[in-house]
Amino acid sequence: MLDIAYETVVAVVGITAILASIGVIVCASPIYSALYLIGNMTCLALLFLLYNAEFIAAVQIIVYAGAVMILFLFIIALLGAKKEERDTSSLQIPMALSFVVLLFGELLMAMTVGKTNPVEGKFSVDFIQQVGSARAIGVELFSRHLIPFELASALLLVATVGIICLAKFPLSPVKRRTR
């Protein structure tokens, strides 16, 4: 009984996530697109939560739904939220359709793989439930994956410094008072 309820909840959340992601591309107004994206991310976080990955769920909400999407909305608010005009003259529709066919073919190919086996990690399920998923991820991240982790953080730092350089110090003095 409870298993059926659990499966139903997972299915409902998953279907909502898919509907939300369809909403992102169908909506004409950028605000609603951003909102659907937030809904999609929240659904993903709920799925992580349902699969007992609390830490990933919290990080998903804090980083993506909480920080990144707020900046999206921020920029939409600053630039003004106008509805996009539909552009039917260009090659957009045939290109999009060919991509859809390609991706759908890939999906069908993926279905032919058949039964998959879960990848066994270093930690058992009991161990993770005992110490919590946050600690398990921390131990894994700072032991086996230390160098990629540090490299990624260095990359992010370089990107931040680069953005500040671009915004604050123009390479050649440009006169901006053309407006």
Binding site: A45, F55, A58, G66, G132, A134
Partner: peptide, 9 residues
Amino acid sequence: NVGILFVFA
């Protein structure tokens, strides 16, 4: 288990 993170989230 990660209560404080959820509060922030």
